[in-house]
Structures are given as C-alpha cells and as structure tokens.
Design a protein around this nucleic acid. Structure first.
Lengths: 153, 153
DNA sequence: TAAATAGGGTTGCATAACGAAACCAAATTC
DNA sequence: GAATTTGGTTTCGTTATGCAACCCTATTTA
C-alpha cells in the first residue's frame, strides 16, 4: 500500500520529512547547494534514475524548495535553482553531514570539512543552543505543549 | 529494483541518509527523544505498521542508533534506548523541526518551540556558524576538497 | 485453573514506489 | 539534413510499505 503521508501531522518534523524525507530529495538539495542546476548534471552527479529525478524535481518545485527557471542558452531549456526555503535547509544538511562524518567516517577519504570563505577556518559543529548560545542536549530542553508528543501520523 | 544504497559513498550526507534517510527512522529517533522506549508505544504513537516498525528498530539497532535493553518488569521484555550516536542526531532533528515550523506551519496548532529547561527560554534557531560563532549561509562556505562534490552514489 | 490480556513479533497478501533501459520530441550543432 | 543535447515519459520487473491476521510467552483476572 501507499506510503503513509504526514501532510497534516501536527508534528513539524513529520511535515518536514513529508517534503524532503525520502532517499533522494536532500541529496538533490545538497547537489543544488554545490551549484548544480541542470537536469543532466543532477542525473550524472547523483547517479539517480531519470524518472525518479523527474519526480523528485517536480515535487521539490511543488513544495517550493526549488524553482524552475527558463533559460534560452544553447539547448538547455531551464534550470532548477534553490529558493529561500531550499537554502534554509542548509543547517539540516550540515547537521547530517557532521553526524555522518563523526559516526560513519568515509573509508577512503577523511571528513571533508566546510570552511568559512572569509577566514578559511573550519565551521563549528552544529549544536542546539540556548538563548545565550550555550550548547544544549536532549535532556536540557522541554516542550511547553505536552500533547505534541503523541500521534505524529 | 532495489533502492540504491549509499553505504560506501564518499559523501557523508549520503552515508547518513543511508541509516536514517527513510520515512520512519528519524521519527522513531524523535519519539525516542520524547522518552518512548517500548515497541507498542512506538507503534501507537507513530501509527506505524508493526512489521515496518520491527524492521526499522532492528536496523537502527544494527546501526547503533538504538540499543535493545532487556528488562524484566511485568510482561515487557525489553526496551529500545538511544545510544550516544542516536542522541547525537538531536541537532538534525531540531534543524528539521525548525525548518518545518518556519515553512510548513501546522494548520491548527502553532509552532511548538523547544525551551531551555534551566531558564525556560526558547532555544535559538539552528545556524551554521563560523569559528567565532557568526551565522553562515550556503554562499559563505567552501570545501577544500573539490572532488567531493561529484558522484555521491 | 481456565481464560483473557499485554508485549513483541512474524507471515501473507495487495498495492505503491523504485530502478534500468528504451523511447520521444524540441532545439541545436555539424 | 543527420547527429547531438536536453529534458523528459513509458514499460517492465523488483522491492518496500501497509494492513490484517496469526503466534508465542508471560502475566493478570475470573
């Protein structure tokens, strides 16, 4: 049967996963952050099937994570560019990257750290922070609204 | 055909998604962060099919995101608890939650913000930060290793 | 002591999603 | 005007997902 959808879930994590929670969408967004814009480039760089790429690009455009821009230059008809909503996934992608680097280091190459273009220094590890910037763990936070912990789907 | 796997990808985002990139795994982790530990509770609170829950729990245990703890109390035989690796997904989950709250606000209820248990204040929005704590956008960072941008799969 | 209930699964089946390769059509280059 | 490039759609076989039913053990309840 069909995958369960979370469109109207009262859990914002579930709603977020509904848009970018599949195997490919976040990788497409990541690739777009690297500068990829054209269909064939996504296809080749990700090694994704064309029909799946079609579907995902359309869905990301529907959800306003990407926008489809018509361009007239030599053969290519349009490009897929990140919207502000799409660029706003940057913290999510970086958090995932750091988690992957920490707990599943690459077999061959080392962790590929991101660096501040202005200073050349590595970026900080992502942390959940209190109002005054102190790092917080799971146990350090609570949710005022208790009912939100139930029934995500 | 089978879903494409990213186990040996040189992209850490792809490797991370290989472990928690499906529709349910991150929600299970989230639920575990809320304090859920038993099979039936995950099942009822998430509304997930039992066989899928079985599969996901086993996979999360395999990947050391959860661990299975035997407990002897009244009928229940074991619990699923977060490991350090699992708790380390906190920034990922919070980043996703904030993105979902910002761009897909819940129809009925408002954004359910997390608060610092010590002060009662709302936590900060997650940002990628430079070495001295300044927020950075996609355009503000670069990767020293250029080849890492290609071929994630 | 028999019966009901709870916890933690497993099995079968129908449907939806995925992946590879082939096919298509408009625009462009040779 | 034939071959290429770009951006898809179609076909088809495999896999994943969801629902419901079943199973086994341990504990309550009658």
């Amino acid at each position: 049967m069909a995958r369960k959808r979370f469109d109207d879930s009262n859990c914002s994590v579930a709603r977020a996963l509904n848009e970018v929670g599949d195997w490919w969408s976040l990788l497409i967004v990541l690739q777009a952050m690297y500068g990829t814009r054209r269909f064939v480039d996504f296809q080749q760089e990700l090694g994704i099937a064309r029909n799946i790429l079609c579907d995902r690009l359309a869905r990301l455009v529907d959800n306003e994570v990407l926008r489809k821009v018509e361009v007239g230059e030599h053969g290519s008809r349009h490009e897929y560019r990140l919207t502000e909503k799409g660029r706003d996934l940057f913290p999510v992608v970086v958090a995932l990257r750091q988690w992957g680097d920490k707990w599943n280091p690459a077999p061959h190459c080392g962790a590929l750290d991101l660096r501040d273009r202005a200073t050349g220094q590595s970026i900080r590890p992502m942390t959940v922070q209190s109002a005054d910037g102190e790092p917080l763990s799971v146990r350090d936070v609570f949710m005022p609204d208790a009912e939100s912990t139930s029934k995500t789907g």
